[in-house]
Amino acid sequence: MTALKLLDVRSARLTAEQVLSFDDVTVRYSAGGVEAVAELTLTIDAGERVALIGPSGAGKSTILRLAAGLASPTSGSVKVFGVDSGQLGRRNHRPERSRIGIISQDYTLVGPLKVASNVASGRLGTWSGIRAVQTLFRPGPTDDIAGALRQVGIADKIWERTDRLSGGQQQRTAIARALFQKPDLLLADEPVSALDPARSDSVMSVLTEPIMFSSTKAVVTSMHDAPLALRHCDRIVGLRSGRIQFDLPASHVSSELLDELYQLDDSQ
């Protein structure tokens, strides 16, 4: 069964576009400091559902921030949709940026705005200035916003002020923003960390299933819950101290590999 699925995915990928590539990337947050990411080389194609797993400080968040253009490598190069990630901030690369969806670990929502406006802001990249102003006062299209919120189970909170929601509800608002945006590359940093197990499972399905046979979309997510990652992603990248420990199809990841990855290192 799994092998068959994998085969399908592989064949879909034959025509797929290269979405994200890291070429010998190293990141140090301070000169001479610890390497958050070390000599990383990694390519992700459309149709792939990739989970980054590994202990805290393995470099998962840094990799996602690099992919979003929110951080820049100390050396090496990161390309997103063929654009150097350092150039992503430029005005002429707005179309590429609009194709990137972000669910960050700290949600990065605007507290004083209503949930509906926060979700609506996911499409800012494709709107004109006038449309943006209109939508700020009258969030819409309401059906799409409500649809995205329904998928994560908080449609009843649509008109609430975002900073009045609980942590889990805020996280789901951030997910709804990404769903509403319909990005081609979804970068999700611990997207279900604040949700209960059943909700985590359903939200992960919402995030990953549309990508399974897509020839344009990909998702890269970091997770601390390895079984959840194995259930919803087909490629697992194990990281430790900023380096790739293994990069395997989900079916090939054994519990021994996971034990080794998460082993506590007493020497540090």
């Binding site: 940026r97 802001s121 200035g129 990005p183």
Partner: peptide
């Protein structure tokens, strides 16, 4: 920053 990274002007 996140909105900008998602394509906002």
């Amino acid at each position: 920053e996140t909105l900008a990274a998602m394509g906002a002007t």
